[in-house]
Design a protein around this nucleic acid. Structure first.
Lengths: 312, 312
DNA sequence: TAACGATGAACCTCAAACAGATGGAAGCCT
DNA sequence: AGGCTTCCATCTGTTTGAGGTTCATCGTTA
């Protein structure tokens, strides 16, 4: 009882004759005839009664036929799935994302991706970077975007990006006339920063101190996005990662906040992370490639943020 | 993408290693290794990532595995069905039966059969012989038992039985002392017969007339079974087919009716009928054999009816 | 007579197995 | 660190058998 026999059986049941079945299978008549008799021999009972130059299927043949048809239906399913996978149209994408990009940046990219891959299912979860790192390590996400501090996650296929941060100022701030904001301009200037336990606060403070300037922290926020709201209201200046800045430009009205190049360079390090010890799905890799490309695009073309207020 | 590849794939997924899979499949390790890579080549994407001497299934492999497992499950179903058919434990039995044997004779035999074949489903319908013949011809029954008059249904696998009829008398009837009832004894004796359109009435009448005796028809009934009720009440003597007589012995209390050999021979012709142009299921043939055997047993051993009142 | 199916003989091809060896990567055990 | 083992991939060479071919024949039946 093998597939070839079942194919022959099915063809004979469908066409009602050995000759036609042979034709349909692109085989010769003796070949099909032999297949049927070898099948009958295997299973130990007759499937057809030969009568008056016709084949009459026995009731047993009808019982079997239903089940054989079910097998072929499943095989068809498998082939469909294989095709879908080949066309990158099959799979489930579990994405973990830190808060900053999860509101606008990531959804935008994911939306583009899902439109191109209509059958793909996805889930997007927002968590703190620490949680995200933990979850992706335990294979709860297929890929994740999170801030990384140490160089530890540089293992496997993980990809690191050093995002050059920009300076966000109220549009009517006197310093907004400059193309580049330097450290000395911010001496004692009211600032909106992240909390002190955050890497970027630490880096910034060190810059101020080594330069001999005073960092005047007017407000501390947990994430970058709310910080921008305070900038918008004129409460101070903030140093912002480009993804958050880009997100802001995509939903806020221009005229309230402007972004400027900041000197010296200060980086936010984010990682595009994959589970360790578990292979990634092709879909995950495909999406990761798109995501990575968009992030690089943002790094290489900071004008889309810096010139946002001008050309709009 | 063929069964062999899927078998190898399944084994590797289950055991988690090529070597163990090879062992399980009674193949060599290179064979399984080759099968997997030829499968990967066919479908166009990786199923396993080779890492640290282990195989890690990709998510795609997991998607496929579910569907492959479903195929094997169906194949298992087919094999089970084949086995059930081999063991005569699969099928549906549609039986048509004329009224006489359908109350006790046929149910008894069918019950025996179903007990021996626990998984078989059956349906038993009672109709007039004419209806039964019509229905079985149009493949509504797998087999049928009916009275046949002409010799017409002697086609195909149909089997005819000439049932030697017996004489049913009230137990206290003076004639009951005889072992054999002859025609002359019944001269002008009150009789309970079937209707005149029935073959057996016609045969009986002819016998009486050629012998020069008078047939005193006290009552006419449609079937044999009610006729026996009248015999029981002493209303007359009846000539009964052995199946109806046997049925009666299996439910009635002895002491009211006795059966005696009747001379000259008079036969009721019944047929064990199969659909024409349609093969019979093995189950139908099996049951037909049992049924045929029981009928022949009844014909060859009439004592079980004739001596019923004595040894009980 | 033509169509259909079963069967047989002779033959061919190829997937799939074998055995047996090798090399590389990685784990395990001193 | 070194040695041993395990596991996988790969190669060579070989064999086997299923499944196909062609061609021919025969019996049945429309």
């Amino acid at each position: 009882m093998n597939l070839k026999q079942m194919e022959a059986f099915r063809a004979v049941m469908l066409t009602g004759s050995v000759s036609q079945a042979a034709q349909q299978l692109f085989r010769t008549q003796p070949a099909v005839s032999m297949m049927i008799s070898s099948l009958e021999n295997d299973i130990g009972f007759q499937l057809f009664e030969r009568h008056k130059k016709r084949l009459y299927p026995t009731p047993e043949a009808n019982y079997l036929y239903k089940e054989v048809e079910a097998i072929f239906s499943r095989i068809q399913d498998v082939n469909q799935t294989v095709q879908d996978i080949q066309n990158k149209q099959y799979g489930f994408l579990r994405i973990g994302c830190m808060p900053g990009p999860s509101n606008y940046f990531m959804p935008d990219i994911l939306a583009d991706f899902l439109i191109e891959h209509p059958k793909i299912q996805a889930s997007l979860q927002t968590r703190t970077s620490d949680s995200v790192i933990e979850w992706v390590a335990s294979n709860q996400y297929d890929l994740a975007l999170a801030e990384v501090t140490s160089h530890q996650p540089k293992v496997g296929r993980n990809q690191l990006f050093d995002l050059l941060c920009v300076c966000a100022l109220p549009a009517d701030h006197p310093l907004a006339v400059h193309d580049i904001i330097t450290l000395d301009m911010l001496d004692a200037e009211p600032m909106i920063t992240l909390h002190p336990d955050h890497m970027i606060y630490h880096d910034l403070l060190q810059l101020f101190e080594t330069g001999g300037y005073r960092m005047n922290v007017r407000l501390q926020t947990r994430f970058f996005i709310p910080a921008l709201k305070f900038v918008e209201r004129g409460l101070g200046i903030s140093i912002i990662d480009p993804i958050s800045a880009f997100s802001y430009t995509s939903y806020a009205q221009p005229g309230k906040v402007v972004f400027r190049r900041f000197q010296p360079d200060i980086f936010l390090r984010v990682g595009l992370l994959f589970p360790t010890e578990t292979p990634s799905s092709m879909i995950a890799l495909e999406f990761a490639q798109l995501l990575s490309q968009r992030i690089e695009d943002l790094c290489e073309n900071p004008e889309q943020i810096l010139c946002w207020d001008m050309d709009d």
